[in-house]
Design a binder for these strands. Sequence first.
RNA 1: CGGGGCGUAGCGUAGCCCGGUAUCGCGCCUGCUUUGGGAGCAGGAGGUCGCCGGUUCGAAUCCGGCCGCCCCGACCA
Length: 490
Amino acid sequence: MADDKKLTTRADDFSAWYNEVVLRAELADYSPVKGSMVIRPNGYGIWERMQRALDDMFKATGHQNAYFPLLIPESFLKKEAQHVEGFAPEVAVVTHGGGKKLEEPLIIRPTSETIIYHMFAKWVQSYRDLPLLINQWANVVRWEMRTRLFLRTLEFLWQEGHTAHATHDEAEEETRRMLGVYRDFMENWMAMPVITGLKTESEKFAGALRTYSCEAMMQDNKALQAGTSHNLGQNFAKAFELKFQTEKGDEAFAWNTSWGVSTRMVGGLVMTHGDDNGLRVPPRLAPIEVVIVPIWKADEERVRMVEAAHNLRNELVAWTGRGATDRLRVHIDARVGIKPGAKYYEWELRGIPLRLELGPKDLEKQSVFSARRDTREKAAIPMAGVAASVAALLERIQNDMFAAAKARQEANSIRTAMTYEKFKEIMAGDGAFVYAGWNGDPAVEARVKEETKATIRCIPDAEFRSAVAPATCMVTGEPAKFEVIWAKAY
RNA sequence: CGGGGCGUAGCGUAGCCCGGUAUCGCGCCUGCUUUGGGAGCAGGAGGUCGCCGGUUCGAAUCCGGCCGCCCCGACCA
């Protein structure tokens, strides 16, 4: 009999492992429509925490939420040349409604630039109306050929920020600011280190002047573009006549930015932190941070232990050391008829950061037995001051998870002098983030993609660049214009 | 759309070559005993064998057609 309780290991088949974790941790399930998925409570709970954290950050940087409709006139998409070229192939079109053929087909938004800037044009008259800083939480549809749970589905949830500014520099500042917000979130909440940088022309958003991204390294050494921030220049403003009167009295087109992150981040979380026992969720994003498993033998003992578990939870939840509203999120697993070991496996699969076992021996010693999900380290925690100890441990787990992911990213980054031959070997093998010189020629980029499947993930921001900039292009040997990061990507 | 794999109970599967109404495990329900790393025993429920057609006395099995899903590729957050 095959032991179907064990997950496929990451080393055996990373892709199969990923699917198994997502399905068995009950993050998501396949829906009847090919390529789309149902996000189950365990997955949605993580997304809700992501939303809350990001939403707070957006508000703190002056943005307001609004909501724009799902359906957009088809003609809108065609108003910006690059935009239509980029999105037309993957747009779903509604041709019938109310039992009749529509005069003008409607598209289901693949992103909302067109309708949002159409509306902005109505709302903005004066420089006094700027900047306009809007975010929306929404679903979008992109008809992808090949889909994967969370990473690429026909429909996905995201937020898209859209702003209008009076000057290029203000828009650029906003673009960079929101990229920084994303990085902050990914590193401090997801415990997922990222590299920020500029996308090349061939990888930038359709219709943007410049696209910046956060690139994260998954455990198979492939890159995940986890978030993008675009300086749209005046491209959409011109297409949608988003004009304003300047202080001097003349007319000018606004400068726009857009930026987004999606439920794809949940997939990134799995591939950054998961191990062969399942998911590992960083405490700050875990809907349940602590699971208490009471242990008993006789029935009388069960009553006592479950009561002790409730007392423990009450003490943990009552603790306000993280602030009055940020209480410890604690669950008691008092299910009868399931042995403790089975419960441990289940909560480990689901990635709950900390398990507390509470049995007669612990009660006697006035302590509780803890097991960290990330390191599987176990230790007794004294009951006296248990809430503060647990909170401190959770914080340590959060930090250690980030440090471990960061160390892995660095261990699999290559900054030494690189020949194209050696590069091909690396990409055919384990893969890596390869920092190398590039002459700036899109033809070189296309050739490397063709030959190795690797692409330029970004031209990294200054802090990520090598101490000594590469002098020559890895492929042609010509003088390098940029240091870039090459990797295979999701 | 190209390549590969697969459709049999909620999940994973055997049976198919060589036709006789479906096997096993997990899960689920009931009861009892259990509970410090995936419990044991007993009983029980659950199936248009992906769909349509053909061959045959008889099809999960043979033949033809169709559909769907997963993985790899082209395309993409």
